[in-house]
């Protein structure tokens, strides 16, 4: 089976004010239905790596391949739109918008029809049902609890049918009980939808649930057996 996501020799360094190497020669592969965890201490560059993998940030050197295609500068937006779903620690929802509007947003950006009878609208409501928010469709995102917000974020990450889900500390802002629920939901969704998952966390319990686990230390990625 071909990997859906390949990162080759990724490095990231800053030259100003002094030379600082954050990531060095990182290579990673992810297959459909595979879940990978990247753990590490705070400040090791986990979020930077995730943002580079998610084309939100540019690597100093290295290559990314998504769905068999090399990611070049002018296709990064399109890659995020069609191949990547994000789940952030801080949820990053549009607080003024409703739950449904937040989930419809990626579809709108992809210029898909979102009228009530459209398939994409049905898909959005399906995911909101899957995360248990079918009775909160028209609630403002700002009125939701942390756990509910993260459920909305998960539904939003899946709605555009991406190939890979990138999650940055998805349970970092949640209490233990809620975090467990979100964890289960995320893994179930990944399994049901057949997506690859790369999750960055320092929550070992979450890391243990993944198929593969890497540790980021001093800018290098080490596989944890």
């Amino acid at each position: 089976m071909e990997p859906i996501f390949v990162a080759k020799n990724i490095t990231k360094s800053f030259e100003y004010p002094t030379h600082l190497s954050i990531l060095s020669d990182i290579s990673l592969e992810a297959f459909p239905r595979q879940s990978i965890a990247i753990v590490g201490k705070s400040g090791e560059g986990k979020t930077t790596l995730l943002h580079i993998l998610g084309t939100l940030d540019e690597a100093t050197s290295g290559e990314l391949f998504i769905a068999g295609k090399k990611v070049v500068a002018n296709m990064r937006d399109s890659c995020r739109l069609h191949h990547i779903g994000f789940v952030f620690q801080a949820f990053h929802l549009l607080t003024d918008a409703t739950v449904l509007d937040n989930v419809l947003l990626p579809l709108q950006i992809a210029r898909k029809p979102i009228h009530k009878n459209s398939l994409d609208y049905a898909r959005a409501t399906h995911f909101l049902e899957m995360v248990g928010l079918q009775d909160r469709l028209h609630f403002r995102a700002s009125k939701l609890s942390g756990g509910e917000k993260q459920r909305v974020a998960i539904a939003r990450a899946f709605v555009n049918d991406p190939d890979i889900i990138l999650a940055d500390e998805p349970t970092g802002n949640l209490d233990h009980g809620t975090a467990q629920g979100i964890q289960d939901l995320l893994f179930r969704a990944v399994a049901d939808e057949g997506k690859a998952l790369i999750v960055v966390t320092h929550n070992l319990a979450l890391a243990k649930q993944t198929e593969m686990c890497y540790e980021l230390e001093y800018g290098a990625l080490h596989k944890i057996p």
């Binding site: 939100l56 937006d77 994000f86 952030f88 549009l94 947003l105 990626p106 950006i109 939003r156």
Partner: peptide
Amino acid sequence: KKEIAIMRALGASKAS
């Protein structure tokens, strides 16, 4: 600022 970043993360282009 944050909304713009969220939209960019979800795939909105600079042109959009």
